[in-house]
Amino acid sequence: MNSSHLSPVSFVKPAVDAELAAFARHQRARLGEIGPELTPVVDALDEMLAGGKRLRPAFCYWGWRGAGGHDVPEIYAAAASLELLQACALIHDDVIDNSDTRRGAPATHRRLAGVHTAAGWGGDAGAFGRGAAILLGDLCLSWCDEMYQRSGLTDEALRAGRGPFDLMRTEVMAGQYLDLVGQARGEATAVAGEATGTGEQPVTVAAALRVMHYKSAKYTIERPLHMGAALAGRHDDLAPIYTAYGQPLGIAFQLRDDILGVFGDPSHTGKPAGDDLREGKRTVLVAETLRRADPADAAEFRRHLGRADLNAETVAWMREVIVDSGALRTCERHVDDYVEQATTALDNGAVAEEARAALADLIVAATSRKY
Rank of each mutant, 00 (worst) to 15 (best):
residue 3 S to L: 11
residue 11 F to E: 01
residue 20 L to E: 01
residue 23 F to S: 05
residue 24 A to V: 15
residue 26 H to I: 07
residue 28 R to S: 13
residue 30 R to L: 14
residue 32 G to K: 07
residue 36 P to T: 11
residue 40 P to A: 09
residue 45 L to H: 00
residue 48 M to Y: 02
residue 48 M to L: 14
residue 58 A to I: 05
residue 59 F to P: 00
residue 66 G to I: 10
residue 72 V to H: 08
residue 75 I to H: 01
residue 79 A to C: 07
residue 94 D to S: 02
residue 94 D to Q: 03
residue 95 V to F: 00
residue 101 T to A: 11
residue 103 R to T: 11
residue 103 R to D: 08
residue 107 A to S: 14
residue 109 H to P: 06
residue 117 T to R: 15
residue 120 G to L: 10
residue 123 G to C: 10
residue 131 G to M: 05
residue 138 D to T: 14
residue 140 C to F: 04
residue 141 L to I: 07
residue 151 S to L: 06
residue 156 E to H: 12
residue 158 L to Q: 08
residue 166 D to H: 13
residue 171 E to W: 13
residue 174 A to T: 11
residue 186 G to M: 03
residue 188 A to D: 08
residue 192 A to C: 06
residue 195 A to I: 10
residue 202 P to N: 08
residue 204 T to M: 03
residue 206 A to F: 09
residue 209 L to K: 11
residue 210 R to Y: 06
residue 219 Y to I: 09
residue 247 Q to C: 09
residue 252 A to G: 02
residue 261 G to E: 09
residue 266 P to K: 03
residue 269 T to H: 04
residue 271 K to D: 04
residue 284 V to F: 05
residue 305 L to T: 05
residue 310 L to E: 00
residue 312 A to P: 03
residue 315 V to Y: 01
residue 321 V to Y: 06
residue 327 A to F: 00
residue 334 H to K: 13
residue 336 D to Q: 15
residue 349 G to T: 13
residue 350 A to W: 08
residue 350 A to P: 03
residue 354 E to A: 15
residue 371 Y to K: 07
